[in-house]
């Protein structure tokens, strides 16, 4: 046995109220859902906790629903459930593509969308699509519910806007007609890989003019980001190769990547440019 998990207490509340009470009352307690990130972090002593509150069987946190104008995704929904959902494939194909690139089948059967977001890794693959869709995150604490825009959720390296005793409850995405989308991810290998850089693009092109565009990236900053300046470059313009080139250059200027085990800052910036070009070309319908 190479790893040993430290001694912990374990609770499996049946309701959200009970979960929030446990988090408030027990010092150094933490939410566990899929556990695919948290247990590795505990095994390697990156995270030290005394108690785990397992929220994976709370019914309010599960499920994918089409609410008419909005799609609702419960935070404890497993990644594989997203891939297999008709609601997701019909309305959020960009999210589906990103989730398909995550982990392995085993990991996707365990890991949850909320866990990926709350772990707040700069490389989180569910983040760029949700940033691009301008999703809203509903969180719940002892004071009740509040809504955090996805663009305000990631506040620093592995830090979210959640207060210590709050739980991410669900993700809301407003339906919108996009003419194109793309998720272009570069990893160190072909499958079961973390991103070196990934670019998500949503575009609304009408008669060759970009009516709206959203560009989001991971692994190029302390948090997953939107490339607002590059979006401004493209918005309202006629689609062309030179426009794509200019926007991709702007993306490369907006990113602030670092050197780490997976890549170097220089390479990530280069790849931000290349991947942004590919992603824009596909989403704008020129490739």
């Amino acid at each position: 046995m190479y790893y040993k998990l430290p001694k912990i207490d374990y609770y499996r509340p049946k309701t959200l109220d009970e979960a929030i009470r446990l988090l408030r009352e027990i010092d150094n307690s933490r939410v566990i859902a899929g556990g695919t990130d948290l247990l590795v972090d505990m095994k390697t002593s990156r995270v030290r906790v005394r108690a785990l509150v397992d929220i994976s069987s709370i019914p309010d946190l599960r499920g994918i629903e089409d609410l008419g104008r909005t799609i609702r995704i419960g935070a404890a929904t497993r990644l594989q459930e997203l891939i297999e959902s008709n609601v997701v494939s019909q309305n959020l194909p960009l999210l589906k593509a990103a989730v398909e690139s995550m982990g392995s089948w085993q990991i996707r059967n365990m890991a949850t969308i909320g866990g990926n977001l709350c772990n707040a890794s700069p490389a989180a693959d569910t983040a760029p699509p949700l940033l691009a869709y301008d999703a809203e995150f509903v969180v719940i604490g002892s004071e009740g519910l509040r809504v955090i825009p996805s663009t305000k959720f990631f506040v620093g390296y592995r830090k979210t806007a959640l207060n210590p005793c709050e739980i991410l409850k669900e993700i809301l995405v407003k339906k919108s007609e996009w003419s194109g989308w793309s998720y272009v991810k570069l990893g160190r290998r072909g499958g079961f890989t973390l991103s070196v850089v990934a670019v998500a693009v949503l575009a609304k092109v009408i008669d060759g003019v970009v009516y709206d565009v959203r560009i989001a990236l991971n692994s190029v900053a302390p948090v997953p980001i939107r490339a607002y300046k590059a979006e401004e470059v493209v918005r309202g313009k006629r689609v062309s190769w030179s426009l794509i080139e200019e926007a991709a250059n702007t993306v490369a200027g907006e990113v602030t990547p670092i050197d780490d085990v997976r890549s170097t800052s220089w390479y990530r910036r280069e790849m931000s440019y290349q991947l942004a070009k590919d992603a824009l070309a596909k989403a704008l319908g020129v490739a």
């Binding site: 695919t36 247990l39 785990l52 365990m110």
Partner: peptide
């Protein structure tokens, strides 16, 4: 399928 090393 799930990995039993990451399941309590």
């Amino acid at each position: 399928p799930a990995v039993s090393c990451l399941l309590l």
